[in-house]
Amino acid sequence: MTGRKAIFGHRLAALVVTGLLFTGQGASAQESSSGEPPYEQQLMRLSEIFGALHFLRPLCGKTDTPSWRDRMEDFLDAETLDENRRRRFIERFNQGYRGFSVAYRECTDAARIAMAQYLSEGETIISDVTSRYGR
């Protein structure tokens, strides 16, 4: 990974840990009529991205500390109090992981492209959610 992309990945992790703490604090005041915060689908997608990165990064020889699974745990701790909601996030993480684990056995150009796209999409989601809903 180039220096810019490495910084990008570390920045994404930092935003997850710090930025989403703010969204969790403000969620109850901004919940939709269904009881979910208005950014719920974005966070579900983010969970799926974490799962995909948890599979792809080691496959392509990247050793992230903390791992994407650990980052998901931090996200869950910051964002979920409800056990059902927590399970939905975990299922999306697992879908992201499984989606790539059935398709890739080795790191390919396509896997590297997907990894870069997921890092970018994850950063966009976090930036959007924290700028719109964070305190």
Rank of each mutant, 00 (worst) to 15 (best):
R4N: 03
E48F: 08
E73N: 10
D109R: 05
L53M: 15
K62L: 13
T18V: 14
N84V: 01
E73D: 09
G51W: 09
C107H: 08
S67T: 14
D70L: 11
R132G: 01
G96I: 00
E79I: 11
Y104H: 13
F8R: 11
I125V: 09
F22S: 14
Q117W: 05
P37M: 07
C107N: 07
S120N: 09
L12E: 05
A116M: 06
P37R: 04
M44D: 04
I126L: 15
T23S: 09
T18D: 11
A103V: 14
L76H: 03
V129L: 13
W68F: 15
G61E: 05
T23F: 05
E123N: 10
L119A: 01
L119D: 01
D77I: 10
S131M: 10
I7E: 15
L15P: 00
F50Q: 03
T63W: 02
F22P: 00
P58A: 07
L53C: 04
M1V: 10
L46F: 15
G3R: 12
F55E: 00
R85Q: 12
G51T: 02
R4V: 06
N84T: 05
F89E: 00
Q41G: 05
P58Q: 09
D64L: 06
R69Y: 12
F8M: 14
L53V: 05
Y39R: 00
D70K: 14
L53R: 07
G35E: 08
Q41N: 13
E83W: 08
T2P: 14
A111M: 02
I7W: 11
A111R: 00
T130M: 13
G3P: 04
F50N: 04
R86S: 03
R88E: 05
H54T: 07
L119F: 09
D64P: 02
H54A: 15
T23G: 02
R92C: 01
T18K: 09
P66D: 00
D74T: 12
L119R: 03
R92K: 15
P38L: 14
I49Q: 11
A29P: 01
Y118M: 06
G51H: 11
F55S: 01
C107E: 09
L81I: 04
D128C: 02
L21F: 12
F22Q: 12
Q30C: 08
Y104N: 03
F93N: 01
R135W: 09
A110E: 15
D82I: 01
E36H: 12
I125R: 05
L21M: 11
Q42H: 14
A6G: 02
S120K: 13
L20A: 01
A52L: 07
E83N: 12
H54F: 08
T23K: 04
F22I: 08
F8T: 02
E48K: 12
M1K: 06
M1S: 13
D70T: 13
S34N: 11
R135G: 11
R112K: 12
N84I: 01
L119K: 00
G96T: 00
E48C: 02
S34K: 10
A27C: 06
G134F: 06
D77Q: 07
R86I: 00
Y97E: 04
E73K: 12
I125E: 01
G122C: 00
V17D: 03
